[in-house]
């Protein structure tokens, strides 16, 4: 009789334990969603310059082509500029769709390699 009662309490305790774990998981998930919602709602007030977006659509591709051709690491293979060319080329690739960043890189390339890019 005693063992049956003990088992009953053990089963009840384990069910309770499982319930607590489930509730904790649910609470954690809810907190994650709340943080996510806050993160997204924060960007509601941000202002976006559409002229920059237009430049990214229309001007960035041609400038990217020019810059990637000018500072391609193969052009500087074996020279003192090889490592710098590698770094700049990677930055150019990262800024492929960002016209403003590409303009900054253009100036840097002109200064570093003593070139003029039209």
């Amino acid at each position: 009789m005693n063992t049956i009662i003990q088992n009953k309490w053990l089963i009840l305790a384990s069910i309770e334990f499982l319930l607590i774990i489930l509730l904790l998981i649910k609470l954690r998930k809810k907190r994650g969603v709340d943080n996510l919602e806050n993160e997204i709602l924060k960007s509601k007030g941000s202002s976006i310059n559409m002229a920059d977006v237009m430049n990214d659509i229309n001007l960035a591709p041609s400038l990217y082509k020019k810059l990637s051709r000018v500072c391609h690491p193969d052009r500087f293979a074996g020279s003192e500029f090889e490592t710098i060319a590698n770094e700049i080329f990677q930055e150019v690739q990262q800024a492929e769709k960002n016209y403003a960043a590409l303009c900054v890189l253009k100036k840097q390339i002109e200064k570093t390699f003593n070139l003029s890019i039209s």
Binding site: I40, L41, S43, K44, S46, I48, V53, D56, I57, A60, P61, E96, K97, N98
Partner: peptide
């Protein structure tokens, strides 16, 4: 695709679109 990529690569714009 190239037009879409420009919009999608601008994370600030994408987040604003989602929030609105």
């Amino acid at each position: 695709v190239s037009i879409a990529e420009v919009v999608l690569s601008n994370q600030e714009l994408v987040r604003k679109l989602i929030s609105l």
